[in-house]
Amino acid sequence: MNSVNKAQSLVDMDNISIAFGGIQAVDDTSVDLFAGEVVALLGHNGAGKSTLVKILSGAYRRDKGTIKIDGKEVAINNPRDAKAYGIETIYQTLALADNVDTAGNLYLGRELLTPWGTLDDVAMEARARDVMGRLNPRFQRFKEPVKALSGGQRQSVAIARAILFNARILIMDEPTAALGPEETAQVSELILQLKSEGIGIFLVSHDIHDVFDLADRVTVMKNGQVVGHARTEDVNKDEVLGMIILGKCPPGAIPGPGALAS
């Protein structure tokens, strides 16, 4: 593999399994991520990729498997634990409280307080104006509940919330699903910028075209299992599509437990 492999991996998820009722949503899956790297998690709807990253972000608790950050095993049992390790998530649904304004959403769960222990709304609004100004300079509607914002603006709020607290590991679940071409380009630019700052990024998508050019590596999942891992320079889009649709592992990829036996 490439040179970063010699370095310590940022995230190691080993042999993760989770079942909902009788359905094995994620089955003995392992993925890893290095600092300054973008890993795309690909697969059909229901392949288990969103579930896998929700285990990392603390939204779900795994049945089996270990999570290592910087090579050390960690306990992530809720979103708060994950945030403590610098893991930030942009959910597919954005997970915004629609009735709360932008600053309130950015700081939800981590509010700035005055010396008297009350909410420091003015300071939060000031920081919000600052960070939103960098992401989306035309954004002006700070006083309105985020319900009133457009899809792209809401996406900016969700992204701003993730990068506001010095994230080391960023999970983006279908980050451009709700966006137009211009906004998608903005998000791509942002991903490259964050990557250059040394942040490790998991990009979850069902559409290979959204992410192939951004990703350093791809991991393809099918029916809860990993079909294979590959560096994007070793495979082409058609081969990856074959992995997603058929579960067929091309020669340039390392097969996983879910690969079609050939």
Partner: peptide, 10 residues
Amino acid sequence: GNPEATDFAG
């Protein structure tokens, strides 16, 4: 406004 988001926010 959004129970799930509040939960996800820790």
